[in-house]
């Protein structure tokens, strides 16, 4: 089981958390101008990194708040966790833009 550092509550066992998938996915702009390709990319396409992965977690059975994390998917070790709204730390390659 992972030990996850909530930026608000500290290190807690994985069972207290819910996984929120890839982080920093920006919703495309005004609906009328969004093409089906852009919708599909936003809704379904994922980087699925083998290596450092930026992802969302929620401390569901704790403070209830969302935060972001960098985790190496080849070892499951967390590089760091950071608050929503903060920039992705430079430990990882920038998220690829399609």
């Amino acid at each position: 089981m992972l030990l996850i550092e909530c930026p608000f509550c500290g290190a807690r066992p994985e069972l207290e958390f819910a996984y929120g998938g890839e982080a920093h996915l920006a919703r495309p702009g005004a609906q009328a101008q969004v093409t089906p390709e852009q919708w599909a990319d936003y809704l379904y396409t994922r980087t699925n990194s083998r290596g450092v992965h930026a992802e969302r977690w929620r401390h569901l059975r704790g403070c209830g708040r969302f935060f972001n994390a960098l985790r190496d998917t080849t070892t499951d070790q967390f590089v760091c966790t950071y608050k929503v709204g903060e920039l992705q730390p430079p430990a990882a390659p920038a998220p690829t833009t399609p």
């Binding site: 599909a40 379904y44 396409t45 994922r46 980087t47 699925n48 083998r50 998917t73 690829t96 399609p98």
Partner: peptide, 15 residues
């Protein structure tokens, strides 16, 4: 995803 990313094809997959 690892192989397809090498040719720039992004897929709706998570491992």
């Amino acid at each position: 995803s690892v192989i397809m990313n090498r040719v720039g094809v992004r897929l709706p997959l998570e491992s």
